[in-house]
């Protein structure tokens, strides 16, 4: 019963967070002087044509009314224009992009697999790489290994993704000709090509993010190694590998998982720079285009979706946290 009530509150909290975010996104974009209708006005853009385009897309109404229409559309769907050329956006309608002639939900559905492929693969890689090098550095604290790992991670943390991506393409794509220089092949089309196209973006993202995780893991591990229970584990005769790998790592993972969950959640909402460098049309590319062209429905939809992912990631982190740390589970 308590769990149910808790879940209920949680869901309510998620929904209201999203509501506030959608409202703010709308408000912010209406404060900006750019007119979203101008995008669909054509050339020459006479005031009459602009008004026509505005009316068709519903941008002529007061912005609060537009916001309410947007909310209504989620439940009842929306309809723009008249006659054969009218546009339908079936419920749940989170907006319709007149630039791309598709409902936002459909656009996100099309683009999400790209971003998810990049994000999940890279995340697994950087977690493995970061945690293992962080553990190694902590255990061999003060040695050459530790210092070089930390120098490496400082470089990684401060490297711009665009630059690393470009260098990766130049080296592995052009000079060595080992991997394709960009593009995305759906998993359903060819699993091998899918993997082949993703290897480089994964490595680039992993390299940059692993640096952060190496630092985090090292710091946590050094702290954990000073805990009483590590001394206990040694005093009962455990081998060092088991002391580190079981008693140490499990406790180190607790904070790492928190950061990881949020990072992954953010990345799933769009790996903007990676997508751009590797010419992959994921959610990040979609959002950047939308911002550049004042494609308001896509901006709102993407913002909401990204927020939703972060909220879900938060929730997932809490769940995993409960599994990893029995002290927080009820």
């Amino acid at each position: 019963m308590r769990t149910l009530r808790f879940a209920g509150f949680r869901l309510l909290g998620m929904a209201s967070t999203l509501l506030v975010i959608s409202f703010l996104t709308y408000a912010v974009f209406y404060v900006l002087p750019a007119d979203p209708a101008r995008l669909s006005c054509g050339r020459p853009c006479t005031p009459e044509r602009l008004a026509e385009a505005s009316a068709f897309m519903g941008y002529d109404k007061p912005w609060l009314q537009q916001y309410l229409d947007f909310l209504g559309g989620i439940f009842t769907g929306r309809h723009f224009g008249a006659g054969q050329a009218a546009v339908d956006c079936a419920a749940p309608c989170f907006g319709y992009s007149f630039r791309l002639n598709e409902p936002v939900t459909q656009l996100i559905g099309e683009r999400a697999p790209v971003t998810f492929s990049i994000a999940v693969g890279a995340a697994v890689l950087w977690l493995l790489l970061g945690v293992s090098s962080g553990v190694a550095a902590a255990v061999k604290r003060g040695t050459l290994l530790d210092r070089s790992a930390m120098v490496f991670s400082t470089i990684g943390v401060s490297s711009p993704a665009y630059l690393v991506g470009l260098l990766g393409i130049l080296l592995f794509g052009f000079t060595l000709d080992m991997v394709p220089v960009g593009g995305y092949v759906p998993l359903t089309e060819s699993p091998v090509d899918w993997l082949w196209h993703l290897v480089l973006p994964w490595c680039v993202l992993a390299l940059i993010n692993a640096a952060l995780y190496a630092r985090l893991t090292r710091g946590q591990m050094i702290e954990v190694l000073g805990e009483d229970y590590i001394r206990t584990a040694r005093a009962k005769g455990l081998r060092e590998r088991r002391v580190i790998g079981r008693h140490g790592l499990r406790n180190v993972l607790i904070p790492v998982v928190t950061v990881f969950g949020l990072d992954l959640g953010l990345l799933l909402g769009g790996a903007i720079i990676t997508e751009r460098v590797f010419s992959m049309q994921g959610l990040g590319a979609l959002l950047i285009e939308a911002v550049g062209t004042v494609d308001l429905p896509v901006i709102v939809g993407m913002t909401l979706f990204a927020a939703f992912l972060v909220i879900v990631a938060n929730f997932a982190v809490d769940l995993v946290y409960g599994v990893l740390d029995p002290r927080v589970s009820r």
């Binding site: 995008l39 669909s40 006005c41 054509g42 050339r43 020459p44 006479t46 009459e48 044509r49 026509e52 385009a53 009316a55 068709f56 723009f80 224009g81 008249a82 006659g83 054969q84 050329a85 009218a86 546009v87 007149f98």
Partner: peptide, 27 residues
């Protein structure tokens, strides 16, 4: 001329007689 299909090059819309009132073949 249909507002639903706006966004293109529309020089002709201001030149053709009656173009300023016309809303396209759908309506």
């Amino acid at each position: 001329f249909a507002p639903e299909l706006s966004g293109g090059l529309g020089y002709h819309k201001g030149l053709l007689a009656g173009g300023d009132k016309y809303k396209g073949p759908y309506t």
